[in-house]
Amino acid sequence: MKIHLTINGKNYSHDVEPRLLLIHYLRENAALTGSHVGCETSLCGACTIELDGKAVKSCTMFAVQADGAKITTIEGLANDGKLHGVQEAFWNEHGLQCGFCTPGMIMASKQIIDRNHAPSDAEIRHGLEGNLCRCTGYQHIVNAVKAAAAAAGK
């Protein structure tokens, strides 16, 4: 099946099998390997991307379902070499260690701030329910989201 997508502002078009998962399309056909696969039960969130403005798990979606969609992946967040506020905050607050969950974590964090300009700690933690991190204990991630929200509000 032929599909057309806009990913990080660029047009992509490929002939794909219906069973190809969107995460595999992004990583292999589009060569955007920033989004990761950490499980097969849709419970780790490492593959989180933004699809038409919504954070979704790209491992739980077929590429054909995304035909015509506008996608932003971790690679598309920085603008002209300038980091997105959430990326900057993860860096400043040490919101990552091994980095494997980080792209998904940053995309989920962006969704939290997009929908709630001043999230509380509890709202941030609730908003990250779909993303597992084994390294940080989440505390520095919570700090990062708070800092990013505060910086965006300025």
């Binding site: 919504k54 979704v56 798990k57 329910e129």
Partner: peptide, 9 residues
């Protein structure tokens, strides 16, 4: 239900 990403889809 589930988490943010699940509720989005």
């Amino acid at each position: 239900i589930g988490d943010v990403q699940v509720r989005n889809m």
